[in-house]
Write a protein that binds this DNA or RNA. Structure first.
Lengths: 344, 344
DNA sequence: CTGTTAGCGCCTTCAT
DNA sequence: ATGAAGGCGCTAACAG
């Protein structure tokens, strides 16, 4: 239970602690090979590992970046966390992840915890419930946001990573139009976030450009069970929205969901209503979470390039001098089996 | 970018640093209320947060536990990470999570990283690819495993948290037998882990006790794409195993999958073969991941009490003196719509 | 090329 | 009830 320290290694190797330190930090510029060998052997013999706390205290920086997500139990954010971990590893960094459960107080608290750990920067995939507070954090370390509510001047110091949300819905509409659809619905929760607003804008624009009917279905259910993990709510919202798609005035033959979770809910709702997908109605999601492939039928979707986005987010923090890797990331249309030509 | 330190607070509050320290550690025994108030105000005014690295260096322990999972992109382990985070929070602890991607070298490396951070203990949900190494780690800090390959004497120092795996399959069989099934298949990858062996044992035993036919389908595909995230492989294995269920000599009218991911794959495969669930064949999974509810039809499953298990794992590390909270956790049968009476 | 030294920010006796 | 002092393990000058 008592770890060997740098002095123990130095003693065993017959050199001074600073040589060990140099060795550990790859400052081998002027070190004789035999010294290196001795050090290496002493380290292994003792099973020595440098104490991160001491190192951090001395250097002032941890080799950690912080990550905030609504919940790791949410498939999308689990995948995001995985991508961020991979991205950080490329820079020799570790990731400390916190779930906020969409609780503003908890969000504030874990931000403070992250700061106390001396993280090099914070990536947040959690909605910004308290903009003021987040902005304050930027004075302590770089902050990169994946989801942002507004995009005004107060966020100048918050870097934003985003897919081209308008392009996603535009591509979806174009795919559907090519298939022959003339009336399409977009199903979304209330557009509180910029992401959603952009998706709506892209939808409206594409539908207008194609000269077809666009039906906006805002699914809002305050009666649902509270949902700290963020999965259930969207799913349920989608399921209950299915009826509104079916009864919409413009008689849509296809539905675009604000994301895959909602699409899956819509799929279940539609089937309960006796509609077949895609024979009666086509369905498209956004994100490309794993279960799109397992859905019945496999779900056509617009894939978010999560790894590329995570790479960019981490790069903004750990290598801010490199060229900012693109502003908006392009969604990729993944055609599976939930879209087809409209009935009749 | 430069954090206030304890001295700054002391100066502003007009007291000594140690009073601040006492305040921070709730050693308020002899402190005058007005002093406390001054300190409190100074802290808020400066936005002061104690430096974790310094605290840890001094006290020797971090308030962190480590968590190893194959990948957070895997739904089950995302949920597990979430549960562990919640459990640790109850003890005022944070969690540092690493994905191993089932790479033994990486597993070793991140274990070492965790040790270097001075974690209080390590929870591993990753298969033990290198038992020797893990055992070595137990001399540095407590280790709790969720999934273990063997259970021999060498693991005496590794605490194990497990659902009663045999009970899960037994319950599944009993549920099916009650429904009227007389021939049941268990579909599993090769039983490399104790978990799987136990599930098989429970299955065989229950099937024998009921006097019905039990078909063991070992799905083994080395030709599949490598799958660092662990989702795809099981899904694909399930899908390709569907044909073997259908053609099995005992003509099973129901299938139990080793877990939900595989069950979902089996479901897709069965449908591709033209079989309806549950009309033609019943299907049961194990775990109760979120998508069971979204599956078509909603999947009957044996729920793992993840939160209770996470609580127990964390307790073993952070409060080892309390009574060990049960050895085996009971699975809970969640009946949805994928099971019904057999055809004819 | 390697050893010596002086803290990093905090906590913990021990005095006061 | 509060202040002073030493050191946790490591790194980064600077000596030698």
């Amino acid at each position: 239970m008592t770890e060997p320290k740098i002095q123990d290694v130095a003693r065993l190797a017959g050199v001074s602690p600073s040589s060990i330190s140099n060795f550990l930090n790859n400052r081998m510029g002027q070190m004789r090979p035999d010294t290196q060998a001795k050090i290496q052997q002493a380290i292994e013999q003792l099973g020595y590992r440098p104490n991160n706390a001491a190192r951090q205290l001395k250097t002032g920086v941890a080799s950690m970046v912080g990550l905030l997500v609504p919940s790791l139990a949410n498939q999308f954010f689990g995948a995001l966390a995985c991508a961020v971990e991979t991205a950080a590893a490329r820079h020799g960094c570790h990731v400390m992840t916190f779930s906020t459960f969409r609780d503003p107080d908890r969000e504030r608290a874990v931000m403070a915890d992250l700061l106390a750990y001396g993280v090099k920067g914070i990536v947040t995939g959690s909605a910004l419930s308290d903009t003021e507070h987040l902005v304050a954090v930027t004075s302590r370390c770089p902050v990169v946001a994946f989801d942002i509510k507004r995009n005004d001047e107060s966020h100048a110091r918050i870097a934003t990573i985003s897919m081209d949300n308008a392009a996603a819905t535009t591509l979806a509409v174009q795919h559907l139009v090519t298939l022959g659809h003339r009336a399409i619905a977009l199903v979304t929760p209330p557009p509180y976030t910029l992401n959603r607003q952009e998706r709506i804008r892209g939808f409206l624009q594409a539908v207008g450009a194609a000269g077809i009917a666009g039906e906006l279905v805002i699914a809002d259910a305050t009666d649902g069970p509270s949902d700290p993990h963020g999965d259930t709510r969207l799913f349920e919202l989608g399921r209950s929205a299915a009826a509104r798609i079916v009864t919409a005035a413009s008689r849509p033959t296809a539905a675009i969901a604000i994301n895959d979770m909602m699409a899956i809910g819509i799929g279940v709702g539609l089937k309960q209503l006796g509609r077949r997908i895609p024979a009666d109605i086509s369905l498209i999601g956004i994100d490309d979470i794993f279960f799109c492939a397992a859905h019945d039928p496999p779900l056509t979707t617009l894939r978010q390039p999560i790894q590329a986005m995570a790479d960019a987010a981490v790069q903004r923090i750990l290598a801010p001098d490199e060229k900012p890797d693109g502003a908006l990331f392009a969604p990729e249309l993944i055609v599976r089996s939930s879209t087809a030509t409209p009935p009749r």
